[in-house]
């Protein structure tokens, strides 16, 4: 399937439970702070194992998953019809879209049975702070 159009996304996206995060504050001293595309989105411990949190980074909705002691960041917008992936059930390193059950690998973003892929984002954890490169 072709990528979902932005108008369609806007129309179909569920905007519940989104945490809005400011861009990475200027002038921080750790190494990640000097990388302008990294954004602090959560602290370790804030997201339970097997759960997700949805963050808004400069208008992009990102689902941050905590799976097997690691963090994975995917677009929160399902490529099928825009369902909220961050509200989906996580099982065996996959998330099931809560709308129609499409199954995506949280690491690669790939649909397990089909051809579609959800955009993924690099996650950097430093000093118990979780950052996403956007």
């Amino acid at each position: 399937m072709a990528g979902i159009g932005s108008a369609a996304v806007e129309r179909s996206l569920t905007k519940e439970n989104v945490i809005y995060v400011d861009s990475f504050p200027q002038g921080m001293t750790d190494t990640s702070a000097e990388e302008p595309s990294l954004h602090r989105v959560a602290s370790v411990g804030e997201i339970e194992a097997g759960e997700a949190s949805v963050v808004d980074v400069d208008g992009e909705q990102i689902a941050l998953f905590h799976v097997n002691d690691a963090y994975f960041a995917l677009s929160n917008v399902c490529p099928h019809q825009g369902g909220p992936l961050g509200q989906g059930r996580v099982e065996d390193e996959c998330v099931y879209c809560p709308w129609h059950g499409w199954q995506f690998d949280v690491e690669s973003g790939e649909h397990v049975q089909g051809d579609d892929t959800v955009p993924t984002y690099e996650v950097v954890v430093e000093d118990d702070e979780i950052h996403v490169r956007v």
Partner: peptide
């Protein structure tokens, strides 16, 4: 219903 289509389903048809 669980197999509903959002308007995106039509918008997406190339």
């Amino acid at each position: 219903h669980q197999d509903f289509d959002a308007p995106a389903a039509v918008d997406n048809i190339e």
